[in-house]
């Protein structure tokens, strides 16, 4: 796969969609059949390594999926190169900050 191929984004979009589907499906089943009774139980679940890893994977999949979507919209509709680079740059920084913040929150709960 070439670094700047169209296929990379195509694959990322579909793989992240599968992760989102699995997490949301699993989450819905959990809420339907054994919902946590209190906020403490929620926090306890997220604080376990497995729960934290699942939430982190979900958050990263959301951000990756969002990145491909934003990039597609920009490539389709924004044609002036400076504006395109600005929007893509700001989006990348925003998504990276969100990823860092999510990781920080999860790690602080898990420790």
């Amino acid at each position: 796969m070439r670094l700047f191929s169209g296929q990379r984004a195509f694959v990322v979009q579909r793989l992240s969609a599968l992760v989102l589907l699995a997490f949301l499906g699993g989450g819905a089943l959990r809420l339907a059949f054994g919902p946590p009774a209190s906020l403490d139980q929620w926090q306890g679940w997220v604080a376990q390594p497995l729960g934290a890893a699942a939430v982190l994977l979900f958050a990263l999949a959301v951000l990756a999926h969002a990145w491909v979507g934003i990039r597609d919209v920009v490539l389709d509709y924004i044609h002036p190169l400076p504006l395109r680079l600005t929007i893509l740059g700001l989006s990348a920084i925003g998504l990276a900050l969100l990823a860092a913040w999510t990781t920080l929150v999860l790690v602080s709960h898990a420790l």
Partner: peptide, 11 residues
């Protein structure tokens, strides 16, 4: 065809 524009603009 493995290109951001040539093929993968198809939505």
């Amino acid at each position: 065809l493995d290109d951001v524009y040539k093929l993968y603009r198809c939505r």
